[in-house]
Amino acid sequence: MTHAPLSRPRSLAATFSSLVLIAVSVPCAVYEFRRAFEGVTSATDVWLAVGASSLSAIVGLIFLAWIARLRPSALAWIAAFAWGTGGALIISGFGNGIVDPAIEASGLDESTAEFVTSVVTGPVIEEIAKAIGVIVLVLTARRLLTRPAEGAVLGALVGLGFAWGEDVGYYLSALDDGISGLWESFLARALLGAFGHAIFTAVCGYALAWAVTRAARPPQAILAGIGGLTAAMLVHAQANGVGLVAPEDSWNLTYGAIELPVLAIGLVLLVWGMRRRHDTLEA
């Protein structure tokens, strides 16, 4: 006797929230890309920048699709990536655009102001912006989540979308120095600091999913969520800090020696979290 395969559970709340995030994020992304392309006269530069940024995103999406199989839903995946590229990026842009000039005008010397905006305020603003989408998706899809690592995947998707949109602007600026400038920027952002934003927000996503799937009481869940967001900010801050203080003559070596192991640890933990079995959950 054969049995028809069980379909994946669905959630009206998760579907609705995903559609709302997509509806909000698409016009935000269009606005951000229009700003990035302002003043760019070379179509070749546009395609090179978009292509270089897309390469990292595609690699990340393929890996996540392999490890997570589009859980909790394909629509949630689209919403997470869209929020990173649209909603999170525009909130971060406006937030940093207000805070950075205020810090620079505060009387701090140039190096101190750069440190504060790069290591303190930047990670706080950007991780809060990205976390908004993760919180919405995790809360509304909580009945679909089978393990905390699925929340990490949603966070990683938001981070991938954020990096995809952000890197286009960086690569366009780098092309002012030609292909060599693009390569140097790609080396730093896509190879040595590979998937940094995905890792940062995955930490927050894991904690949020743990809060809704494992926490015994609301206070425990709230503390887990706050702790995850704080941890994401700290991991983000350390990456920016390393990039800021690394010696110029050995920047690539110093940055890569620290950030590549962070990537490796993150990948191992994500694979372990998605593959390990629970006595009450499916594999």
Rank of each mutant, 00 (worst) to 15 (best):
L89Y: 11
T15K: 02
R217W: 12
A209F: 06
R214H: 09
P123A: 11
P123M: 09
V116F: 03
I222K: 15
L55N: 07
D100C: 00
E184R: 10
Y170Q: 07
M233Q: 08
H3A: 11
C204T: 06
D45N: 10
Y206F: 15
P247A: 15
A105Y: 09
D100R: 12
S92Q: 05
T280I: 12
T254V: 14
A82M: 15
L157S: 01
I125T: 06
F33V: 09
A283C: 00
S106F: 04
A13D: 04
T44R: 08
S180E: 14
H278V: 06
F195W: 09
W47G: 15
H3M: 09
V268N: 06
F115I: 01
F81R: 00
I58E: 04
P148I: 04
L144Q: 14
L108R: 02
Y206I: 05
L229F: 13
A194E: 00
I58K: 02
L234W: 08
I199R: 08
I222H: 12
S54N: 02
F16Q: 03
V46P: 05
I265H: 06
E126G: 02
F63D: 06
N96L: 07
G95V: 04
I132C: 05
A221E: 09
S7C: 03
A65M: 10
L21K: 03
G159W: 03
G95I: 00
W66N: 10
V245F: 14
V212S: 15
V138Y: 05
V203G: 12
A257E: 09
Y206H: 14
T85F: 06
A76T: 02
V153Y: 02
G165Y: 13
V268P: 04
A188F: 07
T15M: 01
L139Y: 15
W83A: 03
E110G: 07
G107C: 03
A149N: 10
Q238W: 11
L12H: 01
L270I: 07
T112C: 03
L234M: 15
I67K: 07
V212Y: 06
G60V: 01
F186C: 12
E38N: 12
F94W: 11
C28Y: 06
A105I: 02
I222N: 08
A149D: 08
A141Y: 03
P5R: 13
I67H: 06
I67R: 09
T146W: 00
V153R: 02
I103N: 03
A49E: 11
W183V: 06
A79V: 05
S11G: 11
L64Q: 01
E104G: 08
L269C: 07
F186P: 01
C204F: 11
A202F: 13
G122C: 03
L154H: 01
T112N: 13
G95C: 02
W251F: 11
G178W: 07
V203R: 01
S7T: 09
I22M: 09
S118W: 00
I125R: 03
G51L: 14
H278N: 10
R10W: 00
P247T: 11
P101T: 06
A215V: 13
E166L: 14
A202E: 14
S185V: 01
A82R: 11
P247F: 14
N96P: 04
I98W: 13
S56D: 00
G241E: 09
S111A: 15
V20I: 15
D279P: 10
S118T: 08
I258N: 01
L160D: 00
